[in-house]
């Protein structure tokens, strides 16, 4: 059977809170959620929810653990689309999902990045089918330009 599954992933804190504001985009779809805090499962009743460890780019060992966790989750869930509001671990999940599963990918850079894209957001440009900034000013720049479709606020 062909899966119609979407994976929605965000780091804990502000990234998750922003993802939750986008939930009308996912209404009624087969969505599996991934974040870092066990208690966030309560925000998405009726959906499967997986946790991964927190890791920043600064901690290479933790980052490998997170990549392994993401790999297992992706192989089990096999999403066809993956959508995220960041941060670095979510970028890893986009890369893996695209390479391994041929998933289509949506990166929405955090609204906190008002003056320039986040480091992960910058890299996401190479792997995102839909590559968005929440700030219209950031679409005007040299090289490949992210799009602006709106903002969570």
């Amino acid at each position: 059977m062909k899966t119609k599954r979407v994976m929605a992933i965000a780091s804990g804190g502000g990234h998750w809170v922003q993802l939750m504001r986008l939930r009308p985009a996912l209404d009624g779809l087969d969505v599996v959620y991934v974040s870092m805090d066990k208690s966030s499962a309560a925000d998405v009743p009726g959906h499967r929810y997986h946790t991964i460890r927190d890791a920043s780019r600064r901690n290479k060992a933790a980052f490998l653990v997170v990549a392994a966790q993401l790999l297992l989750i992706l192989l089990r869930e096999r999403p066809k689309v993956i959508i995220t509001t960041g941060s670095a671990p979510a970028l890893v999940s986009l890369i893996l999902a695209r390479r391994l599963l041929g998933a289509r990918t949506i990166w929405i850079d955090s609204i906190a990045n008002a003056e320039r894209l986040s480091t992960s957001g910058e890299k996401a440009g190479a792997v995102a089918d839909v590559w968005l900034t929440q700030w219209p000013e950031l679409t005007r720049r040299e090289g490949r330009q992210p799009e602006h479709w709106g903002a969570v606020l």
């Binding site: 986008l22 939930r23 009308p24 985009a25 996912l26 779809l29 689309v81 479709w149 903002a151």
Partner: peptide
Amino acid sequence: VADPAFTGRLRAAILDFL
């Protein structure tokens, strides 16, 4: 929740990908 114009456009893209 966010502005429906934004979530609506995201939804259309997701449905298209599915």
